[in-house]
Nucleic acid binder design. Structure first.
Lengths: 125, 125
DNA sequence: TCGACGTATGAGCAGTCGTTCAGATGTCGT
DNA sequence: ACGACATCTGAACGACTGCTCATACGTCGA
């Protein structure tokens, strides 16, 4: 593993966040990396919702949504409010909300991701 | 799959981005959901770097980084500049750059993700 | 031309992820 | 008490991911 610009590597490595921070970030991004979960979170952007309605919006089974919500709950991304046999979830993480806002704002910026052909990736000219 | 608040479901579903957009977003987030890849991208925030230096910063094998870069290249997230036998990569996606900026800015906001015990997730009080 | 080098790539494997299915818990209406 | 209901949970399975290893490609120096 040879290094070309040793000084630069040292600088960038020094500016790199701690391992735990990087792992935490990757974790958060991982939560957003599933279409079903993303739909659930986008739905929650507009306010709290119960599991069955979230399932309807995300077009998955209630069981699947429940599993997703469990994950999100464990990461303190959503929070529950229970009322009788219903469970109303809402976004509880401003960080994630901001990430979602930014992401949604920039939708449609580059359709390239629709055709990841694993080719060169360079521009022709 | 019963719906409780049918009107709300209709509203939220209507405001939901198209399937392709959601899938694309989840895709992008997926690219950021790996610690090694995240390190590579954070390193590239500060300017272009060659593969071997990237590997040093990300503390992985050059092969692993090369695979990562191929993925990122396919999604137009990075771009290569070739000079002799060297390949210099740089961030080529403003959207992703912004996402990274936002993420890095908010690091350390909630250490909860470090201990995802999959428990209740509710606050004790 | 030859070997060293930086990078790229494919195959294969281990680990992870998301789903479904079956079943459990607690709640409501009668 | 009973059944219908909303949600939660664990097991199991198929799909996907990221790694390593071996190898190939183009470039440089001698």
């Amino acid at each position: 593993m040879r290094v070309v610009d040793r000084e630069r590597v040292a600088t960038v490595t020094g500016a790199m966040p701690a391992d735990d921070d990087i792992a935490g970030l990757a974790d958060i991004f991982g939560l957003l990396a599933d279409a079903g979960r993303l739909r659930v979170l986008v739905a929650l952007l507009e306010g709290e919702m119960c599991v069955c309605d979230l399932a309807a919006v995300a077009r998955t089974s209630e069981s699947a949504v429940s599993h997703h919500l469990r994950l999100l709950r464990a990461h303190r991304v959503v929070r529950v409010r229970r009322s009788g046999r219903m469970a109303y979830y809402r976004l509880a993480d401003a960080h994630v909300r901001l990430l979602l806002d930014v992401a949604l704002t920039h939708i449609g910026h580059a359709p390239a991701a629709s055709h990841p052909e694993l080719g060169d990736g360079d521009e022709p000219g």
